[in-house]
Design a protein around this nucleic acid. Structure first.
Lengths: 286, 286
DNA sequence: GTTCCGCATGAATCGATAG
DNA sequence: ACTATCGATTCATGCGGAA
């Protein structure tokens, strides 16, 4: 097979079947949120819980082949609670992927600032999901400086407490210790993030289950790729990863089984591209 | 053995040895943060990574026996990153405890607002730890209403404007929750929390530090016990769980191997009790 | 009595160095 | 080679002394 990657395209079909036809060492980053395990039928791509690991491992095996040596695989997933218990298939999946010689580098937490409402007798609302970071080798690409963010409440609240006099004194008098320290604070406004990501979910009114927000794949795309590189999402859903890639001037490759989602993603991408051509939302990446 | 629980006492010695002598069905809640796996030697209670699960499972087995049927076991733990990879012993521990017939009800995330600094080529700072919630049976005790919190950012911003004195007074009254003066204006709208807990670590300028802040065991003690019930921490460390229990009018039982930490805990408890007896700010919990 | 700044201090992790 | 130790890096907090 190996007929080359369908760059900037979405393939309609099964993830594993199509991944097998993709060339090796050709993708810089894989970001995806696979269908979660579910025992109910008539659900979107529902995979039974007890078959989840054996269903996913062949897919992650193909991803390992397709990924470039210094590339990364970010897997957004969260196990369900069934019958009062958290299921263990995600834990078993991590162990299984380690047996496939994946390196489990890190587990990022996506803290969903606006999680679904609800009340149950045995648990609170679930406000977080795992973003598992796997690589092929210890030496991988990571552009940390791009994700530096404004410093937190600490410096902000302390800066606000500075009087106007203090700030003026800082400008006029550079030599004195006090003024110098203040200018240090003002200048050093950016810090590195942590492995906890605070992002709100996006609500689509169309009645489809909310996947991750554009900001989530965007964060990892900035972190693990350069502009012009290739991002693969084998479970494209409504096209969120493609939107993020387009906005950041990366190429995308998608696979989607459901014709319904496939069409949704195509529309979303069309809309995104046309809005770009109108010159509205263009930002220079990174 | 079964000579009765050493209520409101800390036992100096090994966790497993002492747990074996505790009576069955006698404790309402176990909250603990065991020593984390470590390959370095000469470390406080360091347990090698490859022996961690086999070291802990006998302990969790005893805990299951000692816990009352409707009780809970909250395990605060986080795997280390070694040689560029997250270790898997915590995942294996969860699977092992399920084989012990524990129910893995939930995984709470403790988001450490002030995490350890540092910069590495392959990861950001680690700002979260797991709080694994296990029970013996599906029907367990959970007092959700006690943990309702004010809704939204306006409450947070109001809290920040409180003077330091107000905050201290508030802390000593309820332990970690919201005090009287706060609740005056908080009574507008309360919501249930989620399974993501935002708490800063406590750092003492001198001496030893607590593994988790008092607010962490306090949160679970309020949630899973009534006043007068019994909280067990088989790795008491510097006594944080006991402090939380005392403030919330629960009984504590502790075990600690290191004489150094044992003495620290005794001192901390003495200090806590004497400040209570001086009549400062005691209110009836929950 | 407050408020506010300066400083020390962490359940960290990696790479280099030494044994 | 493999293990043990050390230095460099980094930032939100509490606390103490100063204003």
């Amino acid at each position: 097979m190996n007929m080359g990657l369908p760059i900037d395209k979405i393939v309609l079909g099964d993830a594993y079947d199509n991944l097998r036809s993709f060339p090796s060492n050709s993708v810089d980053l894989v970001v995806t949120s696979p269908p979660y395990a579910d025992n109910r039928k008539n659900t979107y791509q529902g995979v039974p819980i007890d078959k989840y690991v054996e269903w996913f491992l062949p897919i992650s095996g193909e991803i390992k082949r397709i990924l470039k040596p210094k590339g990364s695989f970010v897997l957004n997933i969260k196990e369900r609670a069934v019958d009062g218990e958290r299921q263990t298939y995600v834990l078993e999946l991590i162990l299984g992927m380690k047996r496939q010689n994946w390196l489990w580098v890190e587990e990022y937490v996506w803290h969903k600032k606006n999680c679904y409402p609800g009340k149950w007798p045995n648990r609170f609302r679930d406000a977080w999901e795992r973003c598992l970071h796997f690589t092929v080798q210890k030496d991988f690409t990571m552009h940390q400086d791009r994700l530096m963010q404004p410093v937190g409440d600490w410096a902000e609240s302390r800066l606000k407490k500075l009087s106007a006099t203090d700030k003026v004194r800082d400008e006029s008098r550079v030599g004195s210790g006090f003024g110098k320290n203040v200018s240090n604070w003002v200048n050093r406004q950016m810090v590195y993030p942590t492995n906890v990501l605070h992002m709100a979910t996006e609500s689509y009114n169309r009645g489809h289950s909310a996947s991750f927000p554009v900001s989530l794949p965007s964060w990892f795309i900035k972190l693990f790729t350069d502009p012009g590189e290739i991002v693969l999402d084998p479970f494209m859903g409504s096209g969120t990863t493609a939107i993020a890639a387009i906005r950041l001037q990366r190429h995308y490759v998608g696979i989607e089984l459901s014709p319904n989602y496939y069409n949704l993603a195509l529309k979303a991408i069309d809309k995104e591209i046309s809005s770009c051509q109108r010159g509205l939302d263009i930002e220079l990446a990174p």
